[in-house]
Design a binder for these strands. Structure first.
Lengths: 195, 195
DNA sequence: TTTCCAAATGAACGGGCGTTCAGTTAAATG
DNA sequence: CATTTAACTGAACGCCCGTTCATTTGGAAA
């Protein structure tokens, strides 16, 4: 019953990624089987291997594409103005990028230990790039006297944890809209680092 | 070769918990087998069932004991003084309690989705108790005008995420001692909520 | 209409899984 | 020393795992 209607490679491929993302975010990489992913796509397990080398690559590709999209979107922001303005742009960008991608965020931060050592190193390097972008803003502000942070590295990690943690409890049907959340978090960030 | 020397139930029991905690923190609940845990303890897989009803209970007990210990330690703090002082005590307590328990923290925040619905509800209730303790302080400070937070619930979640995230990158052999970290995080927290 | 081949099937591979349990061991008890 | 029993073994249960591959299918190309 192969190829029931039309050529499928352009359709099934993305469906595999989508199903894998949703299932892994929900149950965890180790708890999801290739047969479950295949069932969600509507094929047999063997067919998945037309679209991924193996299960590990499936996880790595999900995480890499998320990180690459994040870094590209950040670059496209073209942050400008003084450090305080740049920090506001970064903060709002972070929230706006992450909130609609709850599954990606979940997988990227919870499944690091299921990556092979090589793949872990690659994802870590991308993460560090992103952290460094924030730290550069904090250093600029510290130098120019706009910020008074105890340590730029520690503050970077603290702020990213605070912002990313939002994805763990925010619900689109909750009592607060994204704009309101964004304003509240910017308020907290601004005060925390202000001189 | 049963019972090689002395009665073991008081020894093997804790060893099972320790091995399970370390292995689950390292590899994840679903990725760790009962046989691996047994091997780390030095027994056969079947012997584990003298100490736990099943694998699920092993995970739940680890998380519950962590949360109960956290709430008991918090109660023992007997927070006193004005809201700002109480917030400082809470912040420093949180860091001092969590930093030496990296494995417990990791498991408690990463394996929630591997709990059965009933067990999930129980752990969530304990977590909410802890969050509420912080939110009560924030509300007091907001009422008395010492704090100026945008929303006590949002601020609670933001602060806890920031503080707990520390466990994900702090290394005891890193460049910063716990006391220094504690002071830095308190600095960030204080400024973020101050009126 | 015939040929071609991308796409998917379905069975099979060896192996590991959580859990149970009859049997064995050796420390504790009398 | 004889008995009891807590602690553990080792084998077995049925089941699911990731991955491979010969085979089948049916739309597209000639």
């Amino acid at each position: 019953m192969a190829r029931k209607q039309g050529s499928h490679s352009g359709i099934t491929g993305p469906k595999v990624q989508d199903a894998a993302l949703r299932l892994i975010a929900r149950h965890g990489y180790a708890a999801v089987s290739m047969r479950q992913i295949a069932a969600a796509v509507g094929v047999q397990a063997g067919a998945l291997y037309n679209y991924t080398e193996d299960k590990q690559s499936l996880l790595f590709d999900l995480m890499q594409s998320h990180m690459v999209a994040l870094l590209e979107a950040l670059a496209a922001q073209d942050l400008h103005g003084d450090p305080m303005q740049q920090l506001e742009q970064f903060t709002r960008f972070h929230i706006r990028f992450h909130l609609p991608r709850a599954d990606h965020v979940f997988v990227s931060y919870m499944e690091l230990r299921n990556l092979s050592p090589d793949n872990f190193g690659r994802i870590e390097a991308l993460r560090r790039q992103y952290e460094n972008a924030l730290e550069a803003i904090l250093r600029d502000g510290q130098t120019s006297g706009v910020f008074a942070v105890p340590d730029t590295r520690v503050t970077t990690m603290a702020l990213i944890a605070m912002l990313t943690g939002l994805s763990n409890w925010y619900r689109t049907d909750g009592r607060l809209a994204m704009d309101a959340i964004e304003a509240m978090y910017w308020d907290l960030v601004r005060k925390a680092v202000a001189a």
